[in-house]
Design a protein around this nucleic acid. Structure first.
Length: 213
DNA sequence: AAAGTCTACAACCGCAGAGCC
DNA sequence: TGGCTCTGCGGTTGTAGACTT
């Protein structure tokens, strides 16, 4: 409603960032500093909206980011903070130097939720699951773990129902290239965060999706 | 070997609030 | 004071890659 778009959508790239875009963004911020995100893309010669630049920088390119797996201490801290603050990811991130709200949010959704469920705790209330929670309590924790997979599958199904690919979406994202912007493939020599350790995804989960990491 | 399933995470979207004019 | 712009946040989605069947 009358709200002006955050950027001109017609001439902006979407989806995964390329090495070159990353380099441009880093170079620009190194010289000019952060801020003024709206005008940054133009000034930096990027076909991105300011929002996207900010996100990329904050969550990925900032030199002070700490990459790598979360430690048990960090896990516990996140759980404690979440019990106090709820889904205030930015506040939680503020207590974990080098971690971003997006990273913590993702980590919460993929790991910690499961961890709490496997302990018989409700990830929302941080209270023991009661029989009243019925389904949740009796449901194996890995059901929750699999939920995203199920969601993904349903989306896939919907897409199929629409004849293969035509699930109406305002602006279908371009298929991210072969690992497109993922840092593993970023140009060497750039002051970028070190690559993440190999992903842990699924690896140690035997069939049946053992709950609780 | 191929197909199916699931996880992890980067990136997007929409909204709310702060600040400026 | 009200409207507009900008920034930041939280929720959601898409997909690469690992694993299982």
């Amino acid at each position: 409603m009358g709200r002006s778009p955050c950027c001109e959508k017609e001439h902006t790239n979407k989806g995964a960032w390329t090495k070159e875009e990353d380099q441009r963004l880093i170079a620009y911020i190194r010289v000019n500093g952060e801020g003024c995100w709206r005008s940054l893309p133009k000034a930096a010669g990027l076909l991105r909206c300011g929002k996207s630049c900010r996100l990329r920088w904050m969550n990925y390119l900032r030199p002070d980011l700490k990459r790598g797996n979360f430690t048990d201490d960090e896990d516990e801290l996140i759980i404690r903070l979440h019990s106090l603050l709820g889904n205030k990811w930015s506040l939680i991130a503020g207590q974990l130097p080098g971690r971003t709200d997006n990273e913590i949010k993702n980590y919460w959704n993929t790991h910690i939720k499961r961890k709490l469920l496997s302990r018989g705790m409700d990830p929302h209330t941080h209270r023991p699951l009661t029989p009243v929670d019925g389904a949740a309590a009796s449901r194996p924790a890995h059901d929750e773990a699999a939920s995203h997979g199920v969601v993904v599958r349903r989306r896939q199904q919907r897409r199929d129902e629409h004849g293969g690919a035509a699930v109406p979406r305002p602006e279908p994202r371009p298929v991210s290239g072969p690992a497109g912007c993922r840092h593993a493939d970023l140009a060497p020599g750039l002051p970028l965060p070190p690559p993440r350790p190999p992903r842990r995804g699924g690896v140690q989960l035997p069939s049946g999706r053992q709950p609780g990491l």
